[in-house]
Simulated assay, not measured.
Amino acid sequence: MNNNILGIIAGILTSISMLPQLIKVLKEKNVDDLSPVMLLTLIVGLSLWVAYGIGKGEAPIIYSNAFAVLVNLCLLGSYLIYSKRK
């Protein structure tokens, strides 16, 4: 398999991996099982991957990780909103 195709598939899968969690949180409005420290760590790590991708000029790295940052920021925002309701 072509390495570029492999990288694109890996990027898509990793960038959508947290979507089921986000959908569940938005439906149930329950964030009891979320760790804000994990989310912050993941957001920082993914942001560094975006910076790395920009430095290398690698669009698949940039876009897949930028999407993952967005999803995880939504999760973090949901955590901040729904954890205050208790």
Results as ranks from 00 to 15, higher is better:
40 L>A: 07
13 L>H: 07
31 V>K: 07
46 L>K: 13
37 V>N: 11
44 V>K: 05
32 D>K: 13
29 K>N: 08
24 K>W: 14
23 I>R: 15
50 V>E: 04
51 A>E: 02
58 E>S: 11
25 V>E: 03
11 G>E: 07
45 G>V: 02
57 G>P: 01
53 G>T: 10
41 T>N: 07
42 L>Y: 04
15 S>P: 00
21 Q>C: 01
37 V>T: 14
23 I>T: 08
20 P>G: 06
41 T>E: 00
50 V>K: 11
8 I>A: 14
13 L>A: 15
9 I>C: 15
54 I>Y: 06
8 I>N: 07
8 I>H: 13
39 L>S: 01
8 I>M: 12
16 I>G: 10
18 M>Q: 08
38 M>T: 14
40 L>H: 03
34 L>K: 13
47 S>F: 15
22 L>Q: 11
24 K>H: 14
43 I>R: 00
33 D>K: 12
9 I>R: 13
15 S>H: 04
22 L>K: 09
53 G>K: 08
8 I>W: 10
24 K>Q: 15
53 G>W: 06
8 I>F: 12
38 M>G: 02
52 Y>W: 12
44 V>M: 12
59 A>C: 04
46 L>S: 05
26 L>G: 02
20 P>S: 05
26 L>W: 13
33 D>A: 12
42 L>N: 08
44 V>P: 01
57 G>I: 05
38 M>L: 12
59 A>S: 09
46 L>Y: 02
9 I>M: 13
32 D>M: 06
25 V>T: 14
43 I>Q: 00
20 P>D: 04
51 A>G: 05
